[in-house]
Amino acid sequence: MTSSSDDSVFEFPCDFPIKVMGKSHPEFADTVVLVIQKFDDGFHSGRIETRPSSGGNYIGLTCTVRALSRAQLDDIYRALSAHPMVSVVM
């Protein structure tokens, strides 16, 4: 395992899934891609799995990013959580 100062349980770099949920909107997925690309320039829509809610009011995205560090993941989580279109990030 790669050693790091924060004793991470992850070995970087790695593919890391991030779940993002929000109200259904035609531009939701594209907006999430743009936010993530600020931290992972190789990220694209092909790395997203989409699941609409049963009622169609919400959408869930599983975005697999190429994580290079814990700090990068923290930055992605903060940026997504702060976006007005995003309800939940896991």
Rank of each mutant, 00 (worst) to 15 (best):
C14D: 10
S87N: 14
E27N: 14
L61Q: 06
V20H: 07
T2S: 14
M21C: 02
F12I: 07
D41P: 12
H25N: 11
D40L: 06
H25Y: 15
V35N: 03
R66T: 09
M85D: 13
V20Y: 04
S4D: 14
R66H: 10
K38D: 10
S53D: 01
I18W: 12
S8T: 01
F16W: 13
E11A: 13
P52G: 01
D15I: 12
T2G: 13
P17I: 05
R51M: 08
H25M: 12
Q72S: 04
V86L: 04
A82W: 01
P17F: 05
A79K: 03
D41M: 10
E49I: 00
S24V: 15
T2D: 12
P26K: 12
N57S: 14
S53M: 12
K38V: 00
S81I: 00
T2A: 13
P17C: 07
D15N: 10
G46E: 14
P13Q: 07
V9Y: 08
F10H: 01
I36A: 01
S87Y: 10
Y58K: 12
D74M: 04
S4L: 05
I18T: 10
R66P: 01
S8N: 06
L68D: 04
M21I: 12
T64E: 02
E27L: 14
L80D: 12
Q37I: 07
I36V: 13
G56P: 14
I48F: 03
F12Q: 01
